[in-house]
Design a protein around this nucleic acid. Structure first.
Lengths: 146, 146
DNA sequence: GGTATGTATAAGTTGGAACTTATATACAAT
DNA sequence: ATTGTATATAAGTTCCAACTTATACATACC
C-alpha cells in the first residue's frame, strides 16, 4: 500500500470542532495557494467568510463552498479561528498554527537571525561598556554558517 | 474548468538545474510530510542521497526513486542544494527556500518576537547606562504594529 | 573491457484532494 | 410563516501528485 500518511497530529483536546484527530497539519494546510491566500487576506484583520468568498471568487473564480471547505481545513489546522456574529462567521488568523511552522523553521539556521545577532552584539557591547572592561567572553557565537 | 493551476507547468527541463521558473513553491514542497522529513534529516548536515533513501526506507518504506523524486521537488523549490562527489550526490539545506517561508510568515505578528523585544529592552538599558544621559536617538524603532 | 554501485529518469497506476452543484442549517426581516 | 441572506455540508467528478517497477546514466573498481 503506497501513500503512507505519516502525519500524526496531536489531538490534545480539540473539543470545539469535534474532530477526534487533526485532519491536516499546518504545513499541509499552507501547501495550497488558495488557503495561503485566505490567510493573507486575514492578515489585514478579522473578516467575515463572505468577504473572503468575494475576494477569492474575484481572484480565482472559486465558488462559495470551495472557500468554506478551505476555511474548514485552515480551522482544523489551527491556522484560523471563527467567531459567530449573527449569521456571519468572522474569521481571523490564529497564531497557533503559524507557531507550528515557525517552530519547525527554527531548527535551521535562519539568515534573518542576523539582525538579532546584531542586537546581541550591541547588547554585548553595552554590557561590556557598562561593567567597564572585563574578561573577553565568547558571548554566544552560536552557529554561524558561512 | 475547475482546478486553476497557478503554477507554471513547463515541460522542458531535460537536464540542467537552471530552470527559468520554479516548478513548485516552497510551501507546496513543504506540504508533503516526506519532503519535510527529508529537510529535517538534512538539518543535521550535508548527506548523500543514499543515506536519505535508507532513512526514509526504514521509516516509511519508501523506494529509492520516490526519494529521488522528492529531492528533485525540494531542489526545484530551492529548499536543498546538491553537490556531486564522485557517484554520490550530497544534499544540503538551502536557505533560499526557507527564506521564502520565513518572509511570508513575517507578515503576521509572531509571538516569538518577544525575546527580540526583550533584547531591545536590554539593549536600551545598556545604551542608557553607557551614555549616562545623551541625546536620545530613535535608532531603528522599525515597524511595531501594536 | 566488464561489473557493481549510486542516483536519476521513464512510464504507468492510484488515492485523495480540490473542485463542482445541490441541499441543509441558521438567523434576519417582512 | 415566508422569504431572503450567510454559511456549512453532502454527494459526486476530475485531475494531479505520490507512489510503483523498470531502465538509463554515471562513476568506481577489478
Amino acid at each position: 500500500m503506497p501513500r503512507t500518511s505519516a502525519a500524526a497530529g496531536g489531538a490534545g483536546g480539540s473539543r470545539g470542532e469535534g474532530s477526534p484527530t487533526a485532519r491536516r497539519g499546518s504545513f499541509e494546510a499552507l501547501g495550497d495557494p488558495v488557503r495561503r491566500r485566505l490567510v493573507e487576506l486575514l492578515a489585514a484583520g478579522e473578516q467575515p467568510a463572505g468577504a473572503l468568498v468575494d475576494a477569492l471568487q474575484a481572484e480565482a473564480g472559486i465558488s462559495q463552498p470551495a472557500v468554506s471547505q478551505h476555511l474548514r481545513v485552515l480551522r482544523d489546522a489551527r491556522l484560523v479561528t471563527v467567531r459567530a456574529e449573527g449569521t456571519r462567521r468572522l474569521y481571523a488568523v490564529d497564531a497557533a498554527g503559524l507557531d507550528v511552522v515557525r517552530l519547525w523553521l527554527a531548527r535551521f539556521a535562519d539568515p534573518f537571525a542576523q539582525p538579532l545577532d546584531a542586537l546581541k552584539t550591541e547588547l554585548a557591547r553595552g554590557r561590556r561598556a557598562r561593567r567597564r572592561g572585563t574578561s573577553p567572553r565568547e558571548e554566544d557565537a552560536a552557529d554561524r554558517a558561512g
